[in-house]
């Protein structure tokens, strides 16, 4: 399991850190899908989960993030990532520790749900469990030739 700080997610490349822990035999298409989906899930968990950033903050998101990262309660929340490879399916769970109710967006809102669109096209399956604040992603595992 990985435990990332919100600050580390927004300031670094945590998706690549997780990728480096997975079996390195995966093919390039699988690696690409996992990297993109992990990045989106981590950013969602950090921004909208832990820091509770809403659409109303979109016009000044960078300043709002900096302010909330300095908030002892919001800024100290971690994001957990777990993974499991079984029967050629890679399952990844990304869990945040925010307290504001969240759900996957269902409306076609410009500038907002491109992350979800990307993830739905790249992952085999994608679900969000609001009770444990976790996004669960499944990928078909293919070995590199």
């Amino acid at each position: 399991m990985f435990a990332f700080s919100t600050h580390a997610i927004l300031g670094g490349d945590c998706a690549t850190q997780v990728l480096s822990a997975l079996p390195q035999t995966m093919d390039q298409d699988t690696r690409f899908a996992v990297r993109v989906c992990l990045h989106e899930a981590l950013y969602n968990a950090a921004l909208h989960g832990n820091l509770e950033i809403d659409d109303i903050h979109r016009s000044c998101i960078t300043k709002e993030v900096e302010s909330r990262l300095n908030n002892p309660t919001l800024g100290s929340r971690p994001v957990y990532v777990t993974w499991e490879l079984m029967d050629q399916i890679l399952k990844i769970v990304v869990k945040d520790f925010g307290e504001k109710p969240v759900s996957l967006p269902t409306e076609d809102i410009p500038h907002r749900i491109h992350g979800l669109r990307l993830m739905r096209q790249l992952a085999r399956d994608l679900t969000f469990d609001p009770t444990i604040r976790a996004i669960k992603m499944g990928f078909c595992w293919k070995e590199a030739p």
Partner: peptide
């Protein structure tokens, strides 16, 4: 090297 959904959103803006 990389663009995410936030970057795509900014290109739409």
């Amino acid at each position: 090297e990389f663009i995410d959904s936030g970057g795509l959103g900014m290109l739409l803006l």
